[in-house]
Design a protein around this nucleic acid. Structure first.
Lengths: 208, 208
DNA sequence: GTCTATACTGAGATAGAC
DNA sequence: GTCTATCTCAGTATAGAC
C-alpha cells in the first residue's frame, strides 16, 4: 500500500503522545498500524529518525509563523527596537494558537520534554528560528552582556520546556493544589515570568 | 565481599556521570566493578532503584543545608518576611558550594536532566524541601496568586534544570559563542533571572 | 521501489543452585 | 550473599519476494 509511510507516522505520533517515546516500541506501532516491522526501517532508517519526521511536520508551520510575526513587529518598529514583551509574544503566540487547536501536539511536546528529548530536537529543528530571536532579544535588553544573555536564553528554554510538559508532579502539594491551568493560560504566565527574568539587571561578575 | 554494594554504587556513579544513564548498561558497570550481574538486582532490585540510591546519598546533604539556611534567614527576619533574593540564596548557595567541591555531582545532575530523569528524581527526593521553599516564596511575593506561584515554581525548576545541565548546544551560535561560564557563575545568573521572574506582576486572567 | 520473513545483538530481569 | 543460566523484549540488519 502506498500509504504505509503515512500510517506509520500517524500511529507513531498517537502512541508516542499517549505513552512516551521510550515506552512505545516499534513492534507496538506496527501492530496497530498493520504494517511490517522492516517497513519502518525502510521508510525512516531508525526509530529516532521516525521521531524526527514527526517533529518536523509539526514544528515547521509554527516556526514560520513565529518568524513572520517577529518580522511584522520589526517592521512596525521601523528601525526602533521591538520591546521584550513583543519578542516574547512573537515567539509564544503561534505556539499557543497551534497548541490550542491541536492538543496532541502539546502532549507530544510534553512527552519529548519528559524524556529529555526536547533539547536535541530544538537544537536540530529550531536552530535558525532561535538565532533569529536571540538577535531580537539582544537589541531589546542591551544592558545584558552577550554571555549572560545566552545563559538567560538557556533558562528560558528550560522554563518553556517545563511549561509545555504540563507536569505538575513536582508539587503534588498536599495542600491547596489548585486546578491545573490550561495550556494558553500557562504560556501566558510563562511570558510574564520570562519578561521579568530577561529584563533583570546584569549579574555582577563574582570574582571571589 | 561485603563491599560489593559499595563498589557497584561508586562505579555506577562514575560511569553514569561520564556516559549517561541509558548509555550505561548494567553489564558495563559490573564489568568495571568486578562483580556479578545478579548482584545488582540482589542489592538494589533494578537499575532504576540503583540510580535512586545514587541520588539520595548525594542530595540529602544539600537539602539539609538548604533547609538550615532558610531557617536561619527566617530567624533573622524574626517574624518579618524573608525577601525573594534571600530565599533563592538559601536554595542555591548550598548547591553551588557542594557542586564546586564535587564536580562529578554536577555532571551527574546534568546527565539526569539531559535524559529527562530530573523531574522524577526531584519529585521523589526533594519534595519536602521544595514544599518548604514554596511556603517561603508565597510570603515573599504575596501579590502573586497561589495558582500562578505554582506555575512559576515549575518554570523555576525548568530553568534550574537547564542551568545545571551545562548544555550550550541549544545555541551553537555560529557567531560570538562566548566561553562557557563556570557552574558558580551560571547559578548566580540563574538567581538573578529567577528573582526577576518570580517578582513579576501577576498575569491577568485571560478570559478570551 | 516496497515490503516480508527471519535472524542478530544487547538490554534488564529472574529462578535456583551453592 | 553470590553466581550461572536463561528468559523476554528491545532496536536493528539483511536476503529476497513482488
Amino acid at each position: 500500500m502506498i500509504d504505509t509511510k503515512q500510517r506509520i507516522l500517524d500511529t507513531a505520533e498517537r502512541l508516542i503522545a499517549e505513552r512516551g517515546y521510550a515506552a512505545t516500541s516499534l513492534r507496538h506501532i506496527i501492530g496497530e498500524a498493520g504494517v511490517n516491522l522492516a517497513a519502518v526501517h525502510y521508510h525512516f532508517g531508525s526509530k529516532e529518525d521516525l521521531l524526527d519526521e514527526l517533529i518536523v511536520r509539526k514544528a515547521d508551520g509554527v516556526n514560520a509563523q513565529r518568524k513572520a510575526l517577529l518580522e511584522r513587529f520589526e517592521a512596525e518598529a521601523s528601525g526602533g527596537v521591538v520591546p521584550v514583551d513583543k519578542v516574547l509574544a512573537a515567539f509564544f503566540e503561534p505556539m499557543i494558537e497551534y497548541g490550542s487547536r491541536n492538543p496532541q501536539f502539546i502532549k507530544l511536546m510534553g512527552r519529548m520534554h519528559a524524556e529529555g528529548l526536547l533539547p536535541a530536537i530544538v537544537a536540530k529543528h529550531f536552530q535558525p528560528t532561535l538565532l533569529r530571536f536571540t538577535q531580537a532579544l539582544r537589541r531589546a535588553v542591551p544592558h545584558v552582556p552577550e554571555s549572560e544573555l545566552q545563559s538567560r536564553f538557556q533558562f528560558m528554554m528550560g522554563a518553556m520546556s517545563q511549561a509545555v510538559s504540563g507536569r505538575r508532579e513536582i508539587l503534588l502539594d498536599a495542600a491547596g493544589s489548585a486546578a491545573a491551568p490550561d495550556f494558553r493560560q500557562t504560556i501566558r504566565r510563562l511570558m510574564v515570568f520570562l519578561s521579568g527574568g530577561l529584563q533583570a539587571p546584569a549579574t555582577p561578575e563574582g570574582t571571589e
